[in-house]
Design a protein around this nucleic acid. Structure first.
Length: 615
DNA sequence: CCCCCCCC
């Protein structure tokens, strides 16, 4: 390869230019990498490790950060110490008075090279002889305050420096021209003068709120480019400004929006930040943009929904077999009436699922001819086994022009229309349809002192509790051995009769009917459970346990003893029971899960991380 | 500044 020239003077220009020069920022300097250091997110905004690097222009060296989309170059060893690269896109942050080069895009010109020249640290204009911009490998002596931990602060002692200002502010505003397009992935609160070119992939209804802090209205859009996605929100006056202008599917140049930390627990998008559209935000449509990707789907088939946890976000494509009427429900939380419409959607997996549309999407849905429909970002629910809810951040595509849709259309029109489809109602474990959600674990004391299960409601809750006692009478009952029946059978002469099946059998199949006392830190309660619960506790069938009971009562009692002291996660249903003029609430187990300590620990670790984020 | 996605 021909020798490459470093862009001498680049570091000096970057650091010494009083007014920012657009030519500098539009240039593509050639530099040499002197070192790479992987730095952790250090408890602030980011969750991704970054690379702190030193670059040289042959004369001076300069501390820099790689934008995370370039991490892979280091990790795949496409760039090494002393590699020479052209920086195709960069920006600059002022961190505690020091310029920090942010490399947004680069191309390696020469991967293996010798160190060129003897670069020295820059002597900064106006700075005392003290700290240089030389980056120390050790932990910074001065940590910048919370949000600035976006990157590790270099080792500087000048703590009286003015707050960080975007480096490019002056000229960009002055010129009034368009800036370079920045990838969404590179947006951060430390860099104000960007423009993104992004497609609106989802747009919510206008929503109003009213709480102790005030009231107002807002809407959200999801913006996407090739680098990633970000959510943008407009409030009040900005709603009037942008609600009609921003249309789903279209591409816009957007600048001068505010970049805030996203609160992770409220967002499914893979972005640390979100945008607030203000009245001064600039939005310009790009009518013919073809360089911004359209929505990409990762479809899961409808049968596969049972593998996903409740609240998972997924993409589904299917045929709308049935369209429900537009109806309204009254939200328990807000007492508001909310329009809704249920669709029954089927696919080649021969499963059907109920998909609920809300608000405007429910009102505006009008396709009655069994179209192909694709959902991006639908939420998995557990109603009747599995259900889907279309969120305001989801998008609906009727007859999208994608291969999956054409295949599905052809299949449905030829054979699919005549098939039968299975619902998830009977396919989920333990039937009852209550899933265990550790975020919803309630203490037994809390459960018993709440109004759960009262006034003929069936309420569900989760509990993590330890078995204290298992009642040994009626631990199992003789049941009909026919698959899926499970009704109690009666001994008639020498055979067992099932009323439901209208059949007699030589032998019953015993099924568990467990009643047990459980306790957690707050108190104790009686839980009851059926066959799955007994099998989970004893690890043998009820037939086998009854056999032991008959032959060896001591061993049977030992087996009961052995189950004491085990802790499980339970999903339960609380239901009122009227018995001898007495009202009490009974707790039925719909799922029982052994503790997985690795998972529990990882859950707790994530909780800590989340509370860190939402501070 | 919202953070709800509801109901059965």
């Amino acid at each position: 390869m021909a020798d490459v020239q470093l862009t001498n003077g680049f570091c000096a220009r970057l650091n010494n230019s009083e007014n920012e020069e657009d030519e500098l920022y539009n240039s593509q300097p050639v530099i040499q990498f002197l070192s790479f250091k992987r730095v952790p997110p250090s408890g602030g905004a980011s969750t991704v490790d970054r690379y702190r690097v030193i670059v040289s222009d042959g004369e001076h060296f300069q501390q820099s950060m790689l934008a995370t989309q370039l991490n892979h170059l280091v990790e795949e060893e496409q760039v090494l110490k002393h590699s020479i690269a052209v920086i195709e896109k960069f920006t600059c942050n002022l961190v505690q008075g020091k310029k920090l080069l942010i490399i947004l895009a680069m191309r390696v010109l020469k991967k293996e090279a010798e160190k060129i020249g003897n670069p020295t640290p820059l002597q900064l204009r106006g700075s005392s002889s003290g700290p240089s911009v030389e980056m120390q490998a050790q932990t910074p002596a001065v940590q910048s305050p919370a949000p600035s931990t976006f990157m590790n602060t270099p080792n500087v002692t000048n703590t009286t420096a003015p707050p960080a200002q975007p480096a490019r502010q002056q000229t960009q505003a002055g010129r009034g021209g368009r800036h370079a397009i920045y990838p969404i992935e590179s947006l951060s609160p430390y860099q104000n003068h960007w423009t993104i070119k992004a497609r609106v992939t989802a747009k919510s209804d206008i929503r109003t709120w009213s709480n102790q802090r005030g009231e107002g209205k807002l809407f959200n859009v999801t913006l996407m480019d090739e680098s990633g996605e970000i959510r943008a929100t407009a409030f009040n006056a900005a709603v009037d400004e942008f609600y009609d202008r921003l249309q789903e599917g279209k591409v816009y140049l957007i600048s001068k929006a505010k970049v805030n930390l996203a609160k992770k627990k409220f967002s499914n998008l893979n972005n640390e930040y979100e945008l607030t559209l203000e009245r001064s935000t600039e939005v310009e449509e790009c009518p013919d943009a073809t360089d911004v990707p359209t929505v990409k789907f990762t479809f899961v088939d409808i049968a596969g929904l049972q593998e996903l946890p409740k609240d998972a976000i997924c993409d589904v494509i299917g045929i709308v077999k049935e369209v429900g009427e537009l109806s309204t429900i009254t939200s328990k939380a807000t007492n508001k009436e909310i329009p809704k419409r249920d669709l029954t959607v089927v696919d080649k997996s021969r499963f059907s699922v109920r998909v609920t549309l809300w608000g405007k999407q429910a009102e505006q849905y009008n396709a009655t001819d069994q179209p192909v429909v694709a959902f991006k970002g639908a939420k998995v629910g557990d109603f009747q086994g599995r259900s889907l809810s279309v969120m305001s951040s989801s998008s609906i595509f009727i007859n999208p022009d994608i291969p999956e849709a054409h295949l599905l259309r052809g299949w449905y029109d030829s054979i699919g229309a005549e098939q039968t489809y299975q619902s998830h109602t009977n396919t989920m474990p333990s039937g009852g349809g209550v899933n265990f959600d550790r975020a919803e674990i309630r203490s037994l004391h809390d459960v018993k002192t709440s109004d759960m299960g009262l006034s003929d409601r069936v309420d569900t809750f989760c509990s993590r509790a330890t078995i204290m006692h298992i009642r040994n009478e009626n631990i199992a009952y003789p049941a009909c051995p026919t698959q899926g029946c499970g009704k109690k059978v009666l001994l008639m002469g020498d055979s067992w009769r099932c009323e439901k099946c209208d059949k007699s059998y030589p032998k019953p199949e015993y099924r568990y009917m467990i009643s047990m006392a459980v306790a957690d830190y707050s108190g104790q309660a009686w839980f009851s459970g059926f066959n799955d619960v007994g099998k989970a506790i004893f690890d043998i069938s009820a037939d086998e346990l009854m056999d032991i009971k008959e032959r060896d009562d001591t061993k049977f009692n030992q087996m009961l003893e052995r189950a004491i002291g085990s802790t499980y996660n339970f999903a339960c249903r609380a239901r009122q029971d009227n018995f001898n003029d007495q009202t009490r609430v009974r707790y039925g187990i719909s799922r029982i899960l052994p503790l997985d300590y690795r998972e529990e620990a990882s859950y707790l670790a994530n909780l800590l991380l989340r509370s860190e984020w939402s501070r």
